[in-house]
Every structure is written in C-alpha cells, then in structure tokens.
Design a binder for these strands. Structure first.
Lengths: 216, 216
DNA sequence: ACCTGAACACCGTTCAAGT
DNA sequence: ACCTGAACACCGTTCAAGT
C-alpha cells in the first residue's frame, strides 16, 4: 500500500513485510508479488535481496526462530528440557506460519545450531554421552514439531464450521463393528487433539524414558 | 499421454494417476492440469469427481493409508505398538508424498479411525484407561509424523549436492564460542538426523515412559 | 451425468534494460 | 548496485455450453 521511497528497501524490511502478510492473510495466500505490492515495488525488486521464494521463506523462519527464549539456568535439567520444548511450541502457536515453515523445509545450519545449542548443553551437563545427547535432542525436536503442527491443524479444522461439521458427521457414522474402540473412545480422542495437557503428557513420557537412562 | 477413451474416467483412475505423478515428479510439481494432461482430458473433467485440489489430495492420502499393515496379534503389546509405528514410518519413507500429505492437512474422519483403531485397541487391551489410551495414541502418532517428516527432509537435503554443501559450510563455520556444544557434537548430530536407530531410540523412550504407567 | 473450451485472476522467474 | 517492465510458462477455478 504505502509507496516506499527509493533506496529504502532492505532485507529486514522485506522479511518484516513478508512475515506480517503471512500472519494476516495466512501462509497459503502468501506470494512474492503480494509482498512487492505491499511495499509498492515491482516483483523483481525482491530478487536483489533474495535468490528466490524459498530463500525468503528461510529468512522469515530465521527471524522467528530468533524469538526463542533462552534456557532458564536455575532449575533442574528435566525442567530445562521442558522449558525449551514448551518455548518452541508456544512460538509455533503464536505464529502458525512458523509451524508450516518448519515442516516444509529443513533448517539452515545456523538455525539448527541456535535450537540445538541450548538443549545439547543441558543434556551434556546432565552427564549424557555425545551420541545420547544428540539422539535425545533430535527426538525432542521432532516430537515438538509433529505434536504442535498436528495441534495447529486440528484447531484450524475446528474453526472452519463446514470442515468441522463434515468431520463430526464422519466420526458419528463410523461402524461400531469395524471401529469399536474408536467409537467407544470418540469423546476422549476429540479431547486429546491438542492443548497444554496433551503436549505435556507426551513430553513427560519422553522425560520418564530418559530418566531411566540418566547417568549417575 | 495415452489418450483415454470416453467414459473410462473414474475416481480410482484419477487417484492412481495423481499418485503416480506425485511419486515420479515430486509432490511440489504436482498439478491438476498435469493429471488431466496425463489422462488426455481437459482440466475440468476432474471436477466431476473431485470438488477441488484438496479433495483430490485427501483421496490420494486415503488410498495410501489403506496400505498400512494390520496389527500383529501374536506379540506383546509394546511390540504391537512398535509394529504399528514402524509400519507408518516405512509407508512414509516408501512414499514421501504421504509425509507431505499428512503434514499439510488434518485427516478425514475415517482415516483417523483406520489409524487409531489398531493402536487404541492394543492400548485398551493392555489395560490403559480411555483417556490415557487416547493421549498415548495422539502422542505416538505425532511423534511418528514429526520424526519421519524430518528424516525425509534431511535425506532430501543430502541428496541435493548444492544444498548439502551449503549446510556443511555453515556448520563448519560456526563459532565455537557461540555454539560450543554444537561444534563439539557436530558428527553425532549429523549421524542422528534419521535412520532406523534414531527412530527406535525415540520410540523406546516413549515406550519406557509408558511402561512406568502400565496398569497391573 | 460427464466433459469441453474459453476466460479470469493469479503465480515464480528470466531476460534485457535502465539508473 | 538497485530496480523496472514486458514476457514466459505455468497455476486452480468459474462459467456457459455441449452431449
């Protein structure tokens, strides 16, 4: 909208505009041409700062990952792990586009480093050997990614009245012969598609399994 | 390519063609117009069978989920859980488009039922109460989803020489002051981005946590 | 019902050109 | 270097029409 004066374009401004458009219009509706229009420039102006659309995606994701809170230092290591995982989940919930950006392309090296450093440090300090620390980090990260992505999608489904109605109808029409347990547990299943409690349940399972392997 | 004779179009044929195109050309390059061209019909012919592109996506995903193996009945319940989770992961690895289809949109009701029924039955038979069974199912499913999606993306990154070179360069240029643990554990981190061992490690953590809560 | 053909309102990206 | 403008090769989907 607001026509930008010449020579005021910058990577930061483009990233911020792209991010705002993703937040307001949804990640799917996002386009390079939309960003350019918002900035009052031609689509090709962006190519001075980014090699292509994916490059801009990476930059937006990088910007969001920078908002991750630091690891608290005055609590036990399981609580530190909990804090890191919850922090990533909350950031994804606050900015649903982050979930899509994380799910669609692998992290650039420095982003991996930023996420990994805190968690790896905690695990090493707790006495885990290098391989176990690395394996545990990947397990925790992929759990947060999968659980939160799923949660966000189910929440979106519930907000769309038409889709939600279809889902309810299908679930209610399920044959109790073919799917006895699903029919019996339908209320519980619909209650466990997301939420703090569900997330913490899975996280605690992992931490409990980890406790068994805790070095002296 | 092969011009299809009139009146031989069907949902099944369209789904199969769409699936084959996703497998051969990659999910990103997939388009309705591509499917139509492959079938030798106009793009609009598909709209007789599917309401829109997402509808076709759902049908392809549904078709793939039908390939999930049955739950083995002659082993302990933890081994049954393991079999179900490994089965879903293997299906995703064999058909990477499934990973993208699962990550991008929530399951239709009957698909949820098909995945959930086996696992929920196992957990109920093991003596878990309805809520714990439902929570555990969601936890396991989202873990498999997150871990395997991540694994597939990292594997793709390694196959692309240019992207892989950039990633290595970034990791090697990381400051040992800012990221001491990442620099120290770089070899372990790169070894734990995927593979059977990594997947089973996380799965075992969850099962171990579950064992603690096993009802008598 | 099943399918066509033209059209609409978009895309990301290349290329040549301007400053 | 920074940005424009025209063009290319696509998209999903609507609409009116044919059988």
């Amino acid at each position: 909208m607001g026509r930008t004066p010449r020579n005021t374009l910058s990577s930061e401004l483009i990233v911020r505009t792209a991010f705002e458009l993703m937040e307001s219009k949804g990640t799917d509706a996002f386009s390079l041409r939309g960003v350019a229009a918002e900035l009052g420039v031609g689509p090709m102006a962006l190519y001075t700062y980014f090699r292509n659309k994916d490059d801009l995606y990476d930059a937006v994701r990088d910007h969001l990952m920078g908002l991750l809170p630091a690891v608290p230092q005055d609590v036990s290591w399981p609580d530190q792990v909990r804090a890191v995982c919850r922090g990533l989940r909350l950031l994804m919930l606050q900015h649903p586009c982050l979930a899509q950006l994380l799910a669609s392309r692998p992290l650039a090296g420095h982003e991996t480093a930023r996420v990994a450093e805190g968690l790896l440090g905690v695990l090493r300090a707790a006495g885990f050997d290098p391989e176990t620390a690395a394996r545990t980090h990947t397990t925790l990260f992929t759990y947060v990614l999968g659980a939160t992505s799923w949660e966000i999608q189910m929440a979106a489904e519930r907000r769309d009245p038409e889709a939600w109605r279809r889902l309810r109808t299908t679930m209610e029409s399920l044959s109790a012969r073919d799917f006895p347990t699903v029919v019996e547990l339908a209320p519980e299943l619909s209650r466990t598609t997301g939420g703090d409690e569900q997330f913490d349940y899975g996280l605690d399972l992992l931490l409990e399994g980890l406790r068994v392997r805790t070095p002296s």
